[in-house]
Amino acid sequence: MDARFLGIAELTESPSVAVVVDVMRAFTVAAWAFARGAEKIVLAESLDQALALKARHPHWVAIKDGPPAPGFDAVNSPGLLRSVDLDGRTVVQKTTAGTVGALAVKEASLVLCAAFVVAEATAQLLRTRGCDRVTFVVTGEEGRAEEDLACAQYIAGRAGETGPEAAAFLHRAAASRAAAELAQGVRQGVHPDDVALCLEVDRFPFAMVATTEDTLMVLRPYAAPSPSRPHSDEASPA
C-alpha cells in the first residue's frame, strides 16, 4: 500500500482515500460515543455551528475541547464520556484538530476517522476495500503529533504486508507531548484515565466512516469484516 502521512495544512488536493487520525482525544472519544450507544456523530465546523445544531435539536449531545461551557453537554474526554448513556442519540463534536482534519478531506471517496482503539478494524476495512493509495492525516501539532503519526503508521502497516506489533507504536504515543500534557493537567476537561484509554489497542470492533449527509459531515460506526490474519496483541473486549 502506498501510504502518505500529511498534516492538515499539507493537504493540497483531495485524496481518494483518507484516514484522519486523532488519538488524544477526538476519535478515541468518538469511538467511545458509539460504544455508549450513539447513532451518529456530526462533525461541526465551528463552536458556533455546534451550538446552532444543538439549539435546533435540543436532544442532541454537544461535545467540545477544553473545559465545560454553556450550551455543551460534555467535554472531549473518553474518561468522562465512558459513563454517559448515549443510546440512540446524535452527538455533535467540535475539536481543535480531529474534526478539522476530517472536514478538510470531506471530498474524498472514503474518509475514515481513527485512533488506536479502532486500529485493526480500520486496517481491515482498508484491506477489504483494496485501498492501494491512502493518505493518513496527522491532525495534531500541525502534522507533527507523535501519537497520531505512530497510530497512522501502525494502521498502515496492519493494512499492508508488514503486520507490525503495536508495542513500539504505543510507546511512541505514550511518550508524546499530548500524553504528557494530559497527564500533567496542562489541558482542561481531562479525566485521569484519558491517556490510558487513548492507548488501548482495538478496544472496539468497528471502523468509523465519515460521509456528507444533508451538507453535514456525519461519522458512523462500520462493523469490521472478519480478520484476515491473527492479531497477536492483547486487546480489551468491546
Rank of each mutant, 00 (worst) to 15 (best):
A3F: 10
F5T: 01
L6T: 04
L6S: 05
L6K: 13
I8N: 12
A9K: 10
E13I: 12
S14H: 09
S14E: 12
V17T: 15
A18E: 06
M24N: 11
R25H: 11
A26G: 10
T28D: 02
A33P: 01
A35L: 04
G37P: 01
E39I: 00
E39H: 09
A44E: 04
E45W: 01
S46M: 10
Q49R: 08
L53A: 13
H57K: 04
P58H: 14
W60Q: 10
I63V: 15
P67S: 14
F72V: 09
L81Y: 07
R82K: 15
V84D: 11
D85A: 12
L86N: 11
G88F: 07
T90Y: 06
T90F: 05
T90Q: 05
T90E: 07
T96E: 01
A97C: 07
G98R: 03
T99C: 04
K106D: 05
K106V: 04
A108G: 03
V111E: 08
A114V: 06
F116D: 11
V117K: 00
V118S: 06
A123Y: 01
A123R: 01
L126S: 12
V134H: 11
V138M: 03
T139I: 03
T139F: 03
G140V: 06
E141K: 06
A145G: 15
L149T: 03
C151D: 13
C151K: 12
Q153E: 15
Y154E: 10
Y154M: 13
R158A: 07
R158N: 05
G160Q: 05
T162L: 11
A167F: 14
H171E: 15
A179M: 02
L182H: 14
A183P: 00
Q184I: 00
V186T: 15
V186H: 13
P192R: 13
D194G: 08
D194S: 11
A196H: 05
L199T: 05
E200V: 03
V201M: 09
R203S: 01
F204D: 06
F206H: 13
M208W: 00
A210P: 02
T211A: 09
E213C: 09
E213P: 01
T215I: 01
M217S: 06
L219I: 13
L219W: 03
P221E: 09
S226T: 09
S226C: 04
S228M: 08
R229Q: 10
R229N: 01
P230H: 02
H231P: 00
H231Y: 07
S232I: 02
D233K: 03
E234M: 11
A235N: 08
S236R: 13
S236W: 09
P237I: 14
